[in-house]
Design a protein around this nucleic acid. Sequence first.
DNA 1: GTCTATAACCGGATAGAC
DNA 2: GTCTATCCGGTTATAGAC
Lengths: 206, 206
Amino acid sequence: MADSRQKIIEQATREFSEYGYNGARMQRIADKASVNKAMIYYYFSSKDQLFETIIRETFSQIFATLGKILVPGQLDLEDMIRQMIYAHIDFLAANRDFPKILLREIHGKNPIPLKVVRELVNEFGRDNIMYFFRQVEQAKNEEKIRNVDAMQTLWSIIALNIFYFVTEPILSIFWQSSDAADVLENRKQAIIDLVLYGLLPRKDEE
Amino acid sequence: MADSRQKIIEQATREFSEYGYNGARMQRIADKASVNKAMIYYYFSSKDQLFETIIRETFSQIFATLGKILVPGQLDLEDMIRQMIYAHIDFLAANRDFPKILLREIHGKNPIPLKVVRELVNEFGRDNIMYFFRQVEQAKNEEKIRNVDAMQTLWSIIALNIFYFVTEPILSIFWQSSDAADVLENRKQAIIDLVLYGLLPRKDEE
DNA sequence: GTCTATAACCGGATAGAC
DNA sequence: GTCTATCCGGTTATAGAC
């Protein structure tokens, strides 16, 4: 059965997220995927290429998801932001290892993630992002939102979405209780509220 | 001259942030600090202990800074949040490698950062955090802010502050310009605005 | 497609001279 | 405090049988 490749990818994803690129061990990936270590080299030419494949395939999915929401003429800005946050967080929840890998390797000396992001943004993302920016500008002109910078807003949304998944471990220090499933749902709502209330205009503004 | 220890810490901090704990090389740290590799083992018993020292010493400074702001009876919530964001971001700006190390190692299998955070929270942080929570509750009662969860709010603030420093590299993909110094100042203001506007009550609320 | 065996190298850590 | 030399274990990757 040739789902060996898929099992390798799944277990490698976990391994990279737990130990980082440099700490990841090809032997442990093979063991967890129940394949021989040499099999990894049968499907992937090297550790580098295995890593790059994971980053590229997962990131492509995010852009595809985003592309369905950022479609001209469908939603007003408020609903668009709501959908973006839902879709992004749901995707990350279904791929919990991915944000961890990315925040481990996006800065620093590993050139692969930045290279892949750059390529995918140019290939798929640029139009979507530009559309979001135009919608923000329009809402500003219509005085539906205050005078924000669109880039800053997008950046804040992404920050809030991703950060949850990388700081789960710390949270347990404060939140002993944690109904687990509820925690994510509450977080999602808190982010949406913060962003949407944070964008609203105030009459006492310049 | 015995500032060898300090030079080792400085260069090790950079090394850990660039390559991750597992990717960091004792030889490279020694070279960059212009000391012999054996010197590292003269001052620190192991790679683990060198790493733990860095995490503990830097984190202690953050709690000390926070402690000066979260002093009962000094500031109202709005100014307190403003000061927190300023102080936190300024600290991170002066210690840029630290947030990178932390987000690399706080999740995953490296037990050291979580252990240190837990110890320092219990030692210094608990009271400060509780004071912040009480201030939020009070502001809610006085209807100065909407009905937010204090924990979620703190979490969002920290997320926005830290995320900037970890995603600088990606941003350059979109923001070719970047007046460098201005970027951070703009980001700081965007975060403060988003959080403070996001907390304000709305009359059309339940 | 799957496995064993091994090459070729590199890392953390220490012993011990000065 | 500082250095050289070295041990020992582990790592990626491949050769080659089945």
